Amino acid sequence: MTSKTPDTVAPLRFVIAAGHPVRWQLLSELARGDLAVHELSGLLGQPQNLVSYHLGKLRKAELVAARRSSADGRDTYYSLDLARCGDLLSGTGAALHPGLRLAPPAPAASVTGRVLFLCTGNSSRSQLAEALLRDRTAGTVQAFSAGSRPKPIHPHAVTVMAARGIDLAGARPKHLDEFTGQRFDLVITLCDRVKEVCPEFPGHPRPVHWSIPDPAADPGEPPAFEHVADELAQRIGFLLHTLPHRLEKPS
């Protein structure tokens, strides 16, 4: 019997971790957005202790990360590392045969739609997301942002975007009430607190949640803003693959 080489160990671990039906369901739900255990339990129709057990397996495989909710410290939000999953899926095919290495599809060049990003202050996270999505799609996607308690745009948010060639100096904070009754193809909450008070908008079943910490709350602020911008850029890159499919679904 031949021994396993290092190149095959990671793909095998991925197959073992993702291969269980409950864990595959968890991965599928988390691919849509960040969720707490009780939300995953409801979506899967499984008891919370079983869901927690399988989340532990996925965390051990480094496919899923956990972050304590900033709204309720008793809750933990789980997020899927899509970039790592992509690498492991590609490696799994290549481990069987070089011709089976998967390549991610290129995002549609002319994705359209209306997307609203929400956080509490509309001073950094949602403004960064709005600017990044608009820039990434050259404006073909109409991106908006708002907050439940708006406050002035954080200067570090302006600086981070300027370094990426995006001018955020003219952005203004907006209250989410400005968008009441408007139809969006997708509403994304970026803050655990605003998730709890997010109003209903026509045109979609439920908001998507990205549990992203407030960079202004980090003592070493400037690097925190860079980190948040990087995470948002990565999430938006994956969003562009799914947005056309979301638009095809009936409201």
Rank of each mutant, 00 (worst) to 15 (best):
T5F: 14
P6E: 11
V9Y: 13
A10F: 09
F14C: 03
V15I: 15
G19S: 03
H20F: 01
H20W: 02
R23H: 07
R32E: 15
A36L: 00
G42Q: 12
G45S: 00
N49S: 15
Y53L: 11
H54D: 13
R59V: 14
R59W: 12
V64T: 09
T76C: 09
D81M: 06
L82R: 15
L82E: 15
C85M: 14
G86R: 11
L89K: 07
G91T: 11
T92H: 00
A94L: 09
A94D: 09
H97I: 11
P104V: 00
A106D: 14
A109S: 13
S110G: 12
L116F: 05
F117H: 05
T120S: 10
G121N: 10
A129G: 04
L133Q: 03
D135Y: 01
A143P: 03
F144E: 13
G147K: 09
K151L: 12
P152F: 11
P152H: 11
P155D: 07
V158N: 05
M161F: 03
G165W: 14
D167F: 03
A169M: 08
G170A: 15
A171V: 10
A171S: 15
A171P: 04
D177S: 15
D177F: 10
T180S: 15
F184A: 03
D185C: 03
L186G: 08
I188M: 00
D192C: 01
D192I: 02
V194D: 14
V194E: 11
V197K: 11
C198G: 01
P199I: 14
P207W: 10
V208P: 05
H209T: 00
G220W: 02
F225K: 00
E226L: 02
E226T: 01
V228L: 01
A229Y: 02
D230C: 04
L232N: 10
G237D: 02
L239F: 15
T242Y: 06
L243F: 14
P244F: 08
